[in-house]
Nucleic acid binder design. Sequence first.
DNA 1: TAGATTATTGATACCAAGTATCAATTACAC
DNA 2: GTGTAATTGATACTTGGTATCAATAATCTA
Lengths: 140, 140
Amino acid sequence: MYNLQSVVQRLEEEGLRITPSRLAVVAAVLDLSGHFSVDDILSQVPEVGRATVFRTMKLLSEMDVLCRVLLDDGSLRYRVSQRQDHHHHLVCVSCASVQELDACIDPEVLNELARTTGYEIEGHWLEFFGRCTACRSDSA
Amino acid sequence: MYNLQSVVQRLEEEGLRITPSRLAVVAAVLDLSGHFSVDDILSQVPEVGRATVFRTMKLLSEMDVLCRVLLDDGSLRYRVSQRQDHHHHLVCVSCASVQELDACIDPEVLNELARTTGYEIEGHWLEFFGRCTACRSDSA
DNA sequence: TAGATTATTGATACCAAGTATCAATTACAC
DNA sequence: GTGTAATTGATACTTGGTATCAATAATCTA
């Protein structure tokens, strides 16, 4: 679980400078629990330039502070990572809630896939969509 | 396996008009075996307007003549479907080759996911990336 | 086969997400 | 406090896609 201090420390460890713009962006993303777009952050920190918000969010993604979340329409969002290892998401299609999942592709399936196709498997995208408990009871 | 005639028939069945622009776009996509972007098609049929190419490819996607292919960077491409039912892809990261797959998420995994998260699962994205046999031997 | 009608087109303008450029600024090490 | 290299933000650009709308043309029907 990240807070402003721990992210600042991560930035310092990477030899990056702590600037007001970066602090503002980090604080803004840490304030959100679901997924969000760059524009969501931009509207939270209008004093920071657009390019800088993009740059900072890219930085945070590379540092695994943020991860990218794929929506069902194929568009990408961001989210504060709870875990830094490989994982997938279950995204609510009604609200912006996201669950991080333990489940991944069975290694046996990957072997089978490599065997039958002749491909050397390098990676995969796996994201699930559904309606969270709260949204289900809202419309019930 | 589609050809120009069968797609034209599908269009007629949908009550859509057969226009030179549509024929040109359909012929262009049928000519490609791997995945492609709208701009790839645009450059094949410069006489057709940009909006019309987008519209036609959207149409063809809705008719399951084309399907969308997700790349590892999160960008979307298109591809002529070999099968009209739900399926996933294995995409070569070196060339544009795509394999359509039988494998899907184990229903038991979906049940388990619904049970542990309380979500009603509605869908998922699953795409695999790797290097195809040809590309592997090229760089070996 | 000629209209009439309605879908379709394509030019254009727009939007969203993201990158490249570059002069001006500023964090930080000394 | 100063030098310097990293960073910023304005701007322009790119890519992928949608909205608008007058002009056109595919098809239906008489």
